[in-house]
């Protein structure tokens, strides 16, 4: 077990190519990264392969982590880039996306959403653009703040907020969700 916070571990990796320290960083964040990629790709096996590639890229590019913002935010940026690169290359992803698109069309036929169904999240995500999807997952699944998402996606906080708003609007319109104020 290697103690220390994320930034200390990053410093150890950079100064001495410490693979044990990097292993600790992977142990801490693999769940978030794999969940993020599973929600983006909709395919568990593909997502886990991409997560491995993401950590390999993170090892290579670790010197570009400036220390501004959280390490998980930076890692999710690497994961998103890895996802986009693989999407460009992979024909397999195109097939999955086609399936997800069909599921979304099927979902639109129903006026009310049944949230206890397993494929609901996939249908929700399918109506969003890739960027909106990544931002929504970062915000709602990984709990990143708007500022952290802005740093990860290299966009102003205002843009992040408007993309989340637009994403929510799309989901609301496509699935007939009523907005109720709580509190």
């Amino acid at each position: 077990m290697v103690p220390g916070d994320d930034k200390e571990l990053v410093a150890r990796v950079l100064s001495a190519q410490d693979t044990a320290a990097f292993g600790e960083l992977i142990r801490r964040h693999q769940s978030h990264v794999r969940n993020f990629l599973r929600k983006l790709s909709g395919d568990f096996t593909l997502a886990d392969d991409l997560a491995q590639d993401c950590f390999m890229h993170a090892w290579e590019k670790l010197h570009t982590y400036s220390g501004k913002g959280s390490f998980i935010g930076w890692l999710l940026k690497v994961a998103y880039t890895t996802f986009l690169q693989s999407k460009r290359k992979s024909k397999r992803y195109a097939e999955i996306l086609e399936e997800a698109g069909n599921a979304a069309v099927a979902g639109e036929r129903s006026s009310s959403a049944h949230f206890d169904e397993a494929g609901d999240l996939d249908r929700f995500l399918a109506v969003l653009t890739e960027e909106e999807r990544a931002i929504m997952v970062m915000s709602y699944a990984c709990g990143l703040s708007h500022r952290e998402i802005g740093l990860s996606m290299a966009m102003p906080v205002g843009t992040v907020k408007s993309m989340i708003f637009r994403g929510k609007e799309k989901i609301r319109t496509n699935f007939g969700i009523q907005d109720r104020q709580h509190g």
């Binding site: 992977i26 769940s31 949230f115 929504m136 997952v137 989901i171 104020q181 709580h182």
Partner: peptide
């Protein structure tokens, strides 16, 4: 708002066990 809570519930997922991944 209500939709935020709904989305959080939808996006919530169990932590994935390491199981030799790292």
């Amino acid at each position: 708002d209500g939709q935020d809570r709904l989305l959080e519930a939808m996006f919530a997922s169990k932590p994935i066990a390491d199981d030799g991944f790292s």
